[in-house]
Nucleic acid binder design. Structure first.
Length: 373
RNA sequence: GGGGAGGUUCCCGAGCGGUCAAAGGGGGCAGACUGUAAAUCUGUUGCUUCGGCUUCGAAGGUUCGAAUCCUUCUCUCCCCA
């Protein structure tokens, strides 16, 4: 559940505490993505030190490797990985989307082939909930059908219907969980880029008493203006008293839009993925450290940043690490980017409490877009 | 001293008479990345006033035409003495 501790007033932005089995998470919050039970290129201890209390794991990947036997044997994801705070686990719905050539959706569930060894598997809303229970996931996500922009209304509606049906089945299965398992389950709104379908999906999903609601199917290749339009449009139908989660967004501009729309949680591979490709966030935009112009730049990534990386290492050195393909390069940029994201959320929360979110967002984005890196 | 192999665009390396400014790697440069099949992928990499111009160790030669054939020189590596 979520307790709202402050509201911005001028916008729908809100601050709160998300109470979960492995501790409270301050919202709005960004979740780093840890697909395989690790946030790539960084230690849990570093995440913890930054302040992260909730990260994402992936059902699809963990189910395939190491597999259920090992995860059950370990006693769940926390025990297996050593991450002592919360895990939200994605259902595999997105992999059904992104690995579309390897799967077939039926009303029963999704049949798919492993991208690793081609082996055949079936995910149903029930089985996916059960798997996530075995993970001892703090927030499990329902299996859903995520669709790309540009499809016909008819096709989007079909996906919506299946998503709603699966949501009901998943919720029912979750209600029958083992009493010792305290994890929550979130429903996911779909509806593609059709307003009637978004509204309908939101109403159908919200009619089920999920402890939290996610907006899915955004940031799947549509234009930013379209993203914003459907974000705000969909968010208005979500219940105020429940945690709200927009799946798959993670650039400062998208995140601040989501906060303004009243969203509490987001996740994204972006900050960690681009970090491994040498891009780093600063208040003045994103820069690619592998670029030649940084070879003699002995200053920190971001002079305003207080992270350990910025205190100790220069742009020129990190560029050198990337040019030489040293593993430390991605490690340092990942740490910086996650620190940046945490700080951005922290500043966002502070501005909501102060009632200055609107101007904080405007000022931040003004500098961010202006560049001057 | 004798015998053999070879010098290709930043590097390695293919090419062995025209379709070659020259395959393929590497390196360089740039771009992309948004519920992670990603420490990945894509583009580009002689000069150009875009008509061309210069380039395959050097200099000559054969040919309509040469990185590719011939001669000499030069350098490198290997084997034998």
């Amino acid at each position: 559940m979520i307790e709202i501790t402050a509201r911005d007033g001028a916008t729908n932005a809100r601050r709160g505490n998300l109470i979960l089995p492995h501790g409270t998470v301050e919202t709005p919050t960004f979740m780093p993505v840890g697909t395989n039970g690790t946030v790539k290129a960084i230690l849990f201890s570093a995440l913890e030190k930054m302040g992260y209390r909730l990260i994402l794991g992936n059902t699809y990947h963990l189910y395939l490797r190491p597999g259920m036997e090992i995860l059950k044997g370990a006693g769940g994801l926390h025990q297996f990985t050593g991450w002592e705070h919360n895990f939200l686990t994605d259902s595999g719905g997105f992999q059904v989307f992104s690995l579309s050539q390897l799967r077939k959706i039926t009303p029963e569930g999704v049949r798919f082939q492993s991208h690793i060894d081609g082996s055949r598997h079936l995910f149903t809303p029930e089985s996916v909930s059960e798997v996530q229970e075995f993970f001892r996931s703090d927030i499990q996500m329902v299996l859903d059908v995520c669709t790309p922009p540009g499809i016909e209304h008819r096709e989007a509606e079909d996906a919506l219907k299946i998503t709603t049906d699966w949501a009901k089945r998943a919720y029912k299965r979750w209600e029958q969980r083992d009493p010792s398992y305290e994890g929550l389950i979130f429903g996911i709104v779909q509806g593609n880029f059709y307003k009637d379908l978004r509204k309908r999906s939101a109403e159908e999903i919200c009619s089920i008493d999920f402890p939290g609601i996610a907006i899915g199917g955004l940031s799947v290749g549509e234009e930013k203006e379209v993203f914003k339009e459907y974000l705000y449009y969909t968010a208005q139908y979500l219940p105020d008293e429940k945690p709200r989660y927009v799946m798959g967004i993670g650039t400062p501009d998208y995140m601040l839009e989501a906060v303004e729309a009243g969203i509490d949680i987001f996740d994204c591979v972006y900050p960690t993925r681009v970090a491994r490709n040498s891009s780093v966030f600063t208040d003045q935009g994103i820069i690619a450290l592998k670029n030649e112009r940084f070879k003699n730049d002995f200053g920190p990534i971001d002079p305003e940043c207080t992270c350990p990386v910025c205190r100790q290492f220069s742009r020129a050195y990190i560029r050198h690490l990337f040019k030489t393909r040293e593993i430390l390069g991605p490690m340092l940029t990942t740490e910086h980017n996650l620190h940046f994201m945490y700080r951005l959320m922290e500043r966002t929360r502070e501005s909501i409490s102060a009632g200055t979110f609107k101007s904080f967002k405007a000022d931040f984005l003004d500098r961010y877009y202006r560049g001057d890196k």
